[in-house]
Design a binder for these strands. Structure first.
Lengths: 209, 209
DNA sequence: TTCCGCCTCTAACTTTCGTTCTATTGCACG
DNA sequence: CGTGCAATAGAACGAAAGTTAGAGGCGGAA
């Protein structure tokens, strides 16, 4: 019976256009379409489609909130955003809420079909601009491990081990130095970072505040 | 003169096939191709192409390390991974190193052309499977700050203050309880999280591992 | 060369942390 | 109306953490 789909979109032409075009493809089966989040919230949990194509801007409840509530009641359903919103906040909110795909409305219908197949195969098809946003935040978050400028090389090594929760003894073993030296390094680290203890140092060194 | 491109790929057929096909499109200009990272490292900084298509598995230095070194010397260049590697580690390493696009080798040549244009327009075209990995880690990272389930309400409050680096005394003052009680709470927290000290508890409670 | 920062080490010391044990109160659930 | 759990508390103790005050070697910069 093909991949089951629901569409939530308030603009009549877009909603019907999508439905018509997708229905041409025998691999898909459009179960129903909705023009408001509230309707969708009522019906989708009963239909349990494999994919929901979701707009963000809807009258009343928006599409993101709709995803949050629907996915609890229909966990097998995957959500494909289909919207004009390209600003970071909306994108990240949608992904956090549970969307797996994110296409902008300038996407062609043929690509939409491809994307729906990929989504169903466990992929996350998304417009290249959206993916770039993800890559950017990913890189920003991952580059934490950068050494702190004001600290010497050795002090940064110590700080790294300190962040794992190791004891002075364990640190001294790993670096093959005495615990006295470890003490010394850590003391200097606290001095340079203007903090009083381990936790404050880690907060200051690695984000979190 | 079109978008300038270099290709780094050790398999002759793949490299030449790419070059031929891309050259058919007048919007692109393939400046040169290389079969090893070392060659690429020498030449690309001189050519400063707008895009480099990069394989990961190469004889000698791998493609990821190659990106790290090249992008310092040619910062305008964008990197499009083109590889069979689909495991998380390689993907994330590549993105961290500076790749902006990531296509798997089952991608069609026509889609490659599309992807190159998108990359040049500031997007991050990537295979849907790759994007899914990114979405997954993104969601995992964002869902922090929630109180830890296994801990009681009070224990979470204590943990919160603990994370600021406060002394037992300071915590007891803020919560208007005795330091003995604070001790007790913290002891239970360590027990429930299976850790031995403050830093380990914070690492386990708030991401970082 | 002299000076300074980094890395190393020792020793003695105070403070804080973390464990263990014991005990009381209050609330919720069957 | 017990039973269980969260929250409270104090005491006592060992184990770490953090401070202070030395001192020597080494390499780069003034």
């Amino acid at each position: 019976m093909g991949i089951t789909i629901c569409i939530v979109e308030d603009l009549d032409e877009v909603r019907e256009g999508l439905k018509q075009f997708i229905s041409l493809n025998t691999e898909f089966n459009v179960l129903d379409t909705f023009s408001t989040a509230e309707e969708a919230l009522n019906e989708i949990p009963k239909l349990k489609p494999q994919i929901v194509i979701m707009d963000i801007s809807l009258p009343g409840m928006n599409g993101i909130e709709c995803i949050r509530q629907v996915k609890d009641k229909s966990p097998i359903t995957q959500f494909m955003m289909f919207t004009v919103y390209e600003n970071d906040e909306k994108v990240f909110e949608a992904l956090k809420a549970g969307a797996s795909g994110y296409l902008l409305k300038n996407t062609g219908l043929v690509q939409m079909i491809e994307a729906l197949k990929e989504l169903h195969n466990g992929g996350s098809p998304m417009s290249a601009n959206i993916a770039r946003k993800l890559v950017t935040v990913f890189r920003d978050k991952e580059k934490e491990a950068a050494p702190i400028e004001v600290l010497s090389k050795r002090e940064n090594e110590v700080l790294q081990l300190l962040s794992k929760g190791l004891l002075y003894k364990e640190i001294s073993d790993q670096l093959s130095i005495s615990t006295g030296t470890v003490r010394q390094h850590i003391h200097r680290i606290y001095e340079k970072l203007h903090v009083q203890n381990r936790t404050e140092a880690l907060n200051k060194a690695f984000g979190k505040n």
